[in-house]
């Protein structure tokens, strides 16, 4: 690329802003497709099944494992201060406020987001989207909208599931392994958790992450070059872009919500 470093920086910045504008326009087109009939209920249910139901085992297993690790690490730290009775609160708050939505988002990107990009990209390369256009069917309405909407729906549910299994994992370590009192574990959790600051924040984060994943993974697939290497690059790019945006958005929501 020619020009001075400053010119290159300017060019890159303007390209980045242009790309961001295209993603925003794409998100707007999906939003307008959601309110345009027909509803595409059958396709939406299928996508919810693919992205949500088929992810349940992964999310539950991961949540349980993360909860157990938090239980062990939390106990080791808290016992130094004689505060081991607060283990339930620590595990619960960390899971509800942060790890639940964030880890669920990263897992869903890897499992369902990448599959969404690859599937739409393959449809581009095999002219299936052009085939729909030639039947006067808008591919954005028929293919993209149900996939994006499904990710938006399933993220808060999967995140909640992750959190519940995480709390249970922490309980198994704290109560069954270390020997804390089960009632104290649950009571400290119950006393520490605030609905608006913790649970609502968690659900808002998961919903925003779902919208982000839906838009980024479908956009990358929809704009995929029509060949195998292009689909592969788009899939990788979707995973990386969505992961980075998820972490940035997590920080922004946490900061603006008021820690």
């Amino acid at each position: 690329m020619s020009g001075t470093p400053l010119q290159r920086l300017g060019r890159n910045a303007s390209e980045w802003i242009e790309a961001l504008g295209q993603v925003m326009a794409f998100a707007g087109a999906i939003a307008s497709a959601i309110v345009r009939p027909p509803l595409r209920g059958r396709r939406l249910l299928r996508e919810i099944y693919d992205a949500g139901v088929l992810s349940i085992a992964l999310i539950c297993g991961a949540g349980f494992a993360v909860g157990m690790v938090l239980g062990l690490q939390g106990y080791t730290t808290l016992v130094r201060f004689g505060a081991q009775e607060s283990l339930g609160a620590v595990v619960g708050l960390v899971l509800i406020r942060e790890l639940g939505p964030v880890v669920t988002g990263l897992l869903v990107i890897g499992r369902a987001g990448s599959a969404t990009t690859a599937e739409i990209g393959a449809m581009v390369s095999t002219q299936q989207l052009d085939g729909l256009r030639m039947m006067s069917i808008d591919p954005l309405h028929f293919v993209v909208m149900p996939k994006a909407l499904a990710l938006l729906f399933v993220m808060p549910l999967l995140s909640s599931l992750f959190t519940v299994f995480g709390v249970f994992g922490g309980y198994v370590i704290g109560v069954q392994l270390v020997g804390l009192d089960g009632g104290s574990y649950m009571a400290s959790l119950e006393n520490a958790v605030d609905f608006r600051d913790d649970v609502l924040q968690s659900l808002v984060k998961a919903t925003v992450f779902g919208a982000l994943l839906g838009v980024i993974s479908t956009y990358r697939g929809y704009r995929s070059p029509p060949h195998a290497a292009g689909v592969s690059r788009s899939t990788t790019s979707a995973v990386v872009t969505a992961s980075v945006w998820l972490l940035l958005t997590d920080y922004l929501i946490t900061a603006f919500w008021g820690v």
Partner: peptide, 8 residues
């Protein structure tokens, strides 16, 4: 279409 373009 050349490859049919049927929805898989």
């Amino acid at each position: 279409f050349q490859e049919g373009a049927l929805l898989d």
